[in-house]
Design a protein around this nucleic acid. Sequence first.
DNA 1: CGAGGGTTTGAAGTGCATCAAATAGTGTGG
DNA 2: CCACACTATTTGATGCACTTCAAACCCTCG
Lengths: 235, 235
Amino acid sequence: MENPLLKNTSLFSDIDANLLKQFSDVAIIHKYKKGQTIYCEGDSAQFFFIIKSGWVKIFHQTLGGEEAVTDILTTSHIFGENAVFENFIYSHSAEAVEDCEILALPLSLLQTAINNNHKIAVNMLGAMSYHRKKQEKEIEHLTIQTAPQRIGCFLLRLIPKGKTKNIVINLPYDKTLIASRLGMKPETLSRAIKSLTEKTGIKITGARVDIASIESLSEFSCSACSSSYPCEDIT
Amino acid sequence: MENPLLKNTSLFSDIDANLLKQFSDVAIIHKYKKGQTIYCEGDSAQFFFIIKSGWVKIFHQTLGGEEAVTDILTTSHIFGENAVFENFIYSHSAEAVEDCEILALPLSLLQTAINNNHKIAVNMLGAMSYHRKKQEKEIEHLTIQTAPQRIGCFLLRLIPKGKTKNIVINLPYDKTLIASRLGMKPETLSRAIKSLTEKTGIKITGARVDIASIESLSEFSCSACSSSYPCEDIT
DNA sequence: CGAGGGTTTGAAGTGCATCAAATAGTGTGG
DNA sequence: CCACACTATTTGATGCACTTCAAACCCTCG
């Protein structure tokens, strides 16, 4: 029954049916309410997760209560799997930012699979490499983009592939969360959006974003980046 | 002849001698002068590298000439290997920041090894995971640490394990480079060092750093971080 | 000694954060 | 369907951190 979700996860693509069954047999669907913690950094780890629906925030937290959001994930994304390499201790915290359905799978099974099944190991490598590239972009953005540029870049990555004119997109989650995702305060986000609309001709009303033409937006946002639009498949 | 260097690289640990020989047979030592480019982001990639001596800067560059340094590596570190998963195109630039001896190994051989040798794939996974954790810390630091805290954190990670009192360390490369490594300008580094010395009682004269006691330094630096000293094995 | 890069210092500007308050939006119970 | 409570978002005023530009200083090395 869970097969479709598993199958569509890159980690399990082209895996022999037998092994796939092992996973789906023990998979448990967890439901999380908005704001609920899935696990905390430092917790002993027994499961890794695949998101069926909803959004999940990955972050670090300081003693002072400050948060550094490193990623926000949705359907078919995997998280927590890294604990396999970290002595079964989660190296970050995860929280549902809206009601979620999440598949929990035992890490021990993943560990065995990685050690014994070459295809899984190779798939995992692909996933890790993807993640690494994404993180590297993240660091680049934090280092050299201004707040309005980071927003522009974020919007560009929400545009469906191929579209170039009269684009309408909906912000995927609330602005407070977008702000922390982009490493800024909500107030700064609000002001930076204003500045962005003035400089690039886009319109943002509530959660709706209108981009008449990508050009001026990408010119403004990507000038401070090592790659230009389209910024590859990094979401 | 190159065996010692290869053997000590985690990627090749516990690899069967035959495969190891395949690598060492085709390894070429390259020498780079200070400031010399090793490869550029976007270049077609034929080799990955292991550093024998010297320091290498990994970075992204914008059209405007701005640089985002994502890592600085030295002896026995690997770089460029990621291109195996990126269609054999380097996803960042690399430059020698001082005279270097670097082992170049063909990516094609690595690709074959990963696809056919399970142990290599698993080792690679370990390396990627380590890297991922390191990057995650990086993002956290950029997001929530102040400049003086980032310097303090950087210094703490230079302290040899186990040492706690009367520590003397030498800065590994020049301050301009440290600054870009920490995502700030040289002037800011200079001023932030001053503020750090005042607040934590450490002394920095030229490249020499004196830390009488780790305590006040780690208290000051790690208070804005999700983990406290010792910040694990992240270098 | 003198040239040139690395480093520090000073003065002024910019961007983002903070604190406080107003406004818009959303969901609830009546 | 409205009034209320609560949260999200915006706006304004002010402060701090880091940058920028410019100049001085320092160190090394020919």
